[in-house]
Nucleic acid binder design. Sequence first.
DNA 1: CTTAGGG
DNA 2: CCCTAAG
Length: 553
Amino acid sequence: MGMSQWIVSCVLMISRRMPWRWKRFPAILVLDSMREVEVGYFRMQNDFCSMGEEYLLGVEFAESITNLDYGSSEGLQTSVSDSPVLASAAVTDTPWKADLFRAMEVPECQNHQLNADSSRFGEISDPCHKSETFVEEEEPSKSPTSCALQDMGKFHDISSCSFQDILDENDTSLSPSVDMLHSPKNEKSSEFGGLTGQTGEIKRFLGRDALVTTSAPASHTNTFPTPKRSRKPTQRYIDELADPLSRHSKKRREVSSSKSLGVKDHKKCRLGPRAIRLPAEESSVKAIQVPFGSLVQNECPESCAYDMVRSSDRGNLMTKSKDSRISSENQKKKDVFAGAIHLKKRDDSVSAATQKKRDDNVAAVHLKKREDNVTAVHIKKRDDNITAVSPKKPDDCDATVRQKKRDDYLTAESSEEVNGRRKHHRLWTIAEVKKLIDGVAEYGVGRWSRIKKLFFSASAHRTSVDLKDKWRNLLKASGIQSQGSRQGEKKRNMAWRPLPKSILRRVCELATIYPYPKGRKTKIAHIHHDSPDRSTDITLGDYRRILRSINGN
DNA sequence: CTTAGGG
DNA sequence: CCCTAAG
């Protein structure tokens, strides 16, 4: 409770007192703060399901912050005042808040380091009024703040500086609040399994600062396990933060428009490595592992061994979908980074089986046409924010709510994609197999495009090549293929036992009628004349179907 | 573009 | 499933 309000107050204060700082105030920090706001707010709720509107309000706030032009502090204030949550925060009178506002009334003060810092960014360095309250901080070598600064020297991320600014302003009066902020954050960090690097990093700053500056232990501080400090972000993550593009831009999978939309020159659309500084908020969003506890797994035999990979896939999917809603330019930029994060996360997911991992990497590097279908799907940005920002450990109802909401915006295809498929792999349903068999019965083998058009028009995926491949697999599965060593084939057949007998049988029948590789044209006429002999081999229904196909053609 | 076949 | 060669 204190945390969200504290953040809000900080934002307010920044916007009022240091509007210029938004220029160099990394968006990542803003969004992270927003996430904290949300997280803090979540904790206030007893029933996670009942948050409904307020939940959205929080997100809207985050959105408005995100959309905020960095130079504008006005929009921020507007959004702040518009949000009931925040308004309540402003009205509620709590001791810590009093401290906060007292701190805000103190004339702005910065030490020399920060001044140098701001001038380094070519900004207008605001006049440094020194308050007697902060005189002691003048001494750089001894002041706790400078200690913290030195400590953070290894983080070149400017967010550290900016955040430090906030802390500087409040650090005496805000210490208790910082402590409050500190502990829950640690909790959250462990929940995220250390994957939320960005948050963790800032968290570290807070924790460090709190440790250094907090001389007067507040009573409630003891209720939280302070020693449980958040995990140090990996060097790799830090590197990626410093240069998110150079490392992964080449690996990144390009996102182009859907193949079904008629874009066929996707290979020419490959984006070169772009040296564009990405909006940092994207990183914070994408760095979060998105849990989906209650997703229905229709026909996904793959077990939880790949849950990590899949969930990261989902995250990527969602962010991409969200991006598709923004301007294409932005989309490209952000997608670059999405790919980067995606790759990183996958690399970190040690639990994935090696084979699958390899597939994923390969898939991520290549441009897959089919995947582009997903990109065309539009999702409400708000939904994405909710999903990506919401804390881990979603209750079942929480996930259900989100799933429901997303279903409103996802097409059947992509929702199926989310839960049933790994990467560009869509499992063949029994119904599809039946349709395929019917199609083959109708048109024979080889006319896959026609079969696709007539039997699979509903499903945009399943190209004619897919049909052919599936038929080939069916033949293999039904053991018709013969020719090879029977023993080996039999053994291999055991792998895909789940195929229904009826389907297997029909495949066998059709295979005898239409030998896959070639040469069935003559057979058809042949069958027609020799049907009495053949009828012993095939069922009546098959025979009728064959006749029908013949007549139809 | 479609088909066939290999990976 | 993906890619590519061939018609």
